[in-house]
Simulated scan of single mutants.
Amino acid sequence: MENVIAHKTENGVALAQAWAGLEAAKPGIRIREAAKELGSSEAALVATTVGKNAIRLNNDWKGLVSRLPELGHVMSLTRNDSCILEHKGAFEKISIGGSGAGVGTVIGPIESRMFFYAWHVAFAVEQEKSGRRLVSLQVFDKAGDAIMKVYMQEGKSDYDAFRRLVEDFTSEDQSQEQFTEPYAVKTYAAEPDAEELLYDWADLQDTHDFHSMLTKHQVHRHHAMELAHGPFTYPVDAISTKLILESASKTKLPIMIFVGNRGNIQIHQDKVRTIRVLERGHNGVETWLNVLDPAFNMHLRQDTVGSAWVVKKPTRDGLVTSVEVYDHNKDLVVSFFGLRKPGQRELEEWRTLVSSLPTLS
């Protein structure tokens, strides 16, 4: 069913005043939280600063992404409501293909899969925060949610290249009001054929075929976990995320971590070292599981985790095992794999770690 809610535009002046009032009442509040409290969007808040410390960029997404390597050593951030990945390094090998709006593939210290059909608006932003100058590129979808942010690193990034990039991609539109549009709620088959789903699941040849299989059967990903319970999936305790990271750190086991949203998936492919659980947030109840390594940070909000599933996918390289973590709305938050490349079999150490996780009935 098509969403009947019309486009929403924010009054830039009124929104800026409301945001300033909220920041005065709650110093240090994060922009994503502020947007929710104000009933607005993050993109709309950023737009109120256009002409002061933000510049609208045009929508030449392929051209923009192809220029990211010029920035040198940066920090790339991708998040959803529950999990954040941050990598420091350079955008190295970038390829852009696919039909229509296309897909961008980034390989190197920063690894991403970019889906340009969801990219709607971008800004170059320069702000002072806690005595630091933060310079970034920020991309948002049509609902105003952040897709990706790229932060310059003092003493390591090429700020001249940043200025040239902004000059080349500045939009003619420099308004302080942002149009947003909510996404239509996806519909799925009320009663998918479990037998046919499991037949196709057993015939998988590559992990990348999994999404198309779900689309073919019009089944929600979490519902697929339930339908495949036994042959290919089983639930584990939500504490498994912490156990995975702590065990991988202790044994120096290289793993893969996938975190995404509508427009970008960021991927970690390496070891993890420093694992910490911290509380933060203005309500004092947010519990975050963190990886705090020099070139990689992960932040997982544990109080939003609803379930975790072990998932087994047959491939031409043998069985591939992952752990998928879902929030209370049954949306995918983060996925964990043992590090492997196409043509390689899965690490036995990873399978051993997964088999040790506490199972649920």
Score class of each variant (00 low, 15 high):
A34F: 03
E33D: 15
R32S: 11
L45Y: 01
K52Y: 13
R56F: 12
R32H: 13
V50R: 01
A35P: 07
S40V: 03
D60C: 10
S41H: 08
R32K: 14
T48W: 10
G63T: 11
R32V: 10
I55K: 15
R56M: 05
E37V: 02
N59R: 15
N53V: 10
K52W: 11
D60E: 14
S41Q: 09
A34W: 03
R56I: 02
K26I: 15
A44W: 00
V46I: 14
P27Y: 06
P27L: 07
A47P: 05
T49A: 14
G63A: 12
N59C: 15
A43G: 11
R32P: 08
G51M: 05
V50G: 07
A47W: 05
K36M: 09
P27N: 05
K52A: 15
K62L: 04
L38P: 02
K36T: 12
E42F: 02
A35N: 08
D60T: 05
N58S: 07
G51F: 13
A35H: 08
G28Y: 10
S41P: 03
G63D: 12
G28H: 11
W61D: 05
S41V: 06
T48F: 12
N59W: 13
A43R: 03
K62N: 14
R30E: 08
A54V: 09
E33H: 13
D60G: 09
E37A: 04
K26C: 11
R30K: 15
V46E: 00
K26N: 09
N59V: 12
A34D: 00
G51Q: 02
K52S: 15
N58Q: 14
E33T: 06
L45D: 00
A54H: 05
R56S: 12
I29T: 09
A47E: 06
E42N: 04
I29W: 06
K36N: 07
E42T: 02
R56H: 11
G28S: 11
L38N: 00
V50D: 08
L45Q: 04
T49L: 15
V46C: 05
N53K: 13
K52F: 14
S41G: 08
V46F: 03
E37C: 01
N53T: 11
L57W: 02
K62I: 12
I55Q: 15
L45C: 08
K26D: 10
A34Y: 03
E33V: 09
I55F: 11
A35L: 03
L38R: 01
L45K: 02
N59P: 07
N53G: 15
K52N: 15
P27T: 10
W61K: 02
T48H: 07
G63V: 05
W61F: 10
T48E: 13
V50A: 10
A54T: 11
G39T: 04
G63N: 04
V50Y: 06
E33G: 00
K62P: 02
